[in-house]
Amino acid sequence: MTDIVSRARTEIAKHATGNRFADLLEAGAVPEERLRWLAGELYRLVGSDRRSQALLAARFPASPAGDLFLTLAQGEAEALRLLGDFASAVGMGEAELAAYEPLPLAQAYPAYLTQLAVFGSSSAMALALLANVDESGGTYARVAAALRGRYGLSEKAVGHFLYFAETPQELLDVARAVLDAGLAGGEDADEAVRSARIVSALEGAFWDALADGLA
């Protein structure tokens, strides 16, 4: 039987369309105002994801799921801290981040993660992480490199993006254990694959919203 992670990645690949925002950023074609949009959108997204992971830890407190989701919540808190350096570099302080009006379609991704946190299975969230980690990490690595190379930002300023560019193998191993335990306990494999595909699509929609209207 095909491994479920491979199955999910195959489904995701069928709908892959590239990343227009990363392409534009690498070409130096993203105006500085859009970089402030990026900071504002990520401020909302990461804060929401932190709460979603904490909720999952409360719903699934036993090991290994509780360990995974608590670690992910702590990781989002660190990412939020690092985001402050990027925001400062593009001229946004705490007040500006709090006042920023988010793009609805950009926030569909964290909204869906909240739905998974409330109604989804532990295996669905674990599979979403495992199936999307390479694509997501690659995007963040591209964004970090472009911000430094094209926009002259410091390594500290792009620390948020570098943080998400690589996921420790130990964390992925725990996610795999959560996935296997959830499926062995009767959680729906088809629903987990479906959730992983939607997570990928909505992460793409986040970047597309930031690129909308640019050449």
Rank of each mutant, 00 (worst) to 15 (best):
M1N: 07
M1I: 08
D3W: 00
I4H: 05
I4K: 08
V5Q: 10
V5A: 09
R9W: 05
E11F: 07
E11P: 10
A13W: 02
A13N: 04
K14S: 09
N19E: 02
R20F: 00
D23Y: 01
L25H: 01
E26H: 00
A27N: 05
G28A: 03
A29N: 07
P31S: 05
E33A: 12
R34Q: 04
W37V: 13
W37H: 15
A39W: 07
G40N: 02
R44F: 12
R44E: 09
S48H: 14
D49G: 14
R50Y: 13
R50C: 11
S52N: 15
Q53S: 12
L55G: 13
A57E: 09
A57Q: 09
A58I: 08
R59D: 04
P61V: 00
A62N: 12
S63C: 08
A65Q: 12
G66C: 12
G66D: 07
D67F: 06
D67M: 04
L68T: 10
L72F: 05
A73F: 00
A73S: 07
G75P: 10
A77M: 08
E78G: 10
E78V: 14
A79E: 12
L80A: 14
L83N: 10
G84M: 13
G84Y: 09
D85Q: 14
F86V: 08
F86N: 12
A87G: 11
S88N: 11
A89F: 03
G91S: 13
G91R: 12
G91W: 11
M92N: 13
M92C: 13
G93D: 15
G93M: 14
G93F: 14
A95D: 15
P102E: 06
L103Y: 09
P104C: 07
L105V: 03
Q107I: 04
Q107E: 13
A108C: 11
A108T: 10
Y109F: 14
Y109W: 14
P110I: 07
Y112T: 08
T114E: 13
T114G: 13
T114D: 15
T114K: 13
Q115V: 03
L116P: 01
L116F: 03
L116Q: 06
A117F: 01
V118N: 05
S121R: 07
S121D: 06
S122Y: 01
S123I: 03
M125S: 05
A128S: 12
A131G: 01
V133S: 11
E135D: 12
E135F: 11
G137Y: 03
G138T: 03
R142S: 07
A146L: 01
R150L: 02
Y151D: 08
Y151W: 09
L153N: 02
L153V: 03
L153Y: 02
E155K: 13
K156I: 01
A157W: 05
V158P: 08
H160N: 13
H160T: 11
H160E: 08
Y163W: 15
F164I: 10
F164K: 10
A165T: 01
A165I: 02
P168F: 04
P168A: 04
L171P: 07
L172S: 02
A175W: 03
A175S: 06
R176L: 05
R176Q: 15
R176N: 09
A177N: 11
G182Q: 14
L183T: 07
D188G: 08
R194L: 15
A196N: 06
V199A: 12
S200V: 08
S200N: 15
L202F: 14
E203Q: 11
D208N: 08
A209W: 01
A209F: 10
G213Q: 00
G213F: 02
L214H: 00
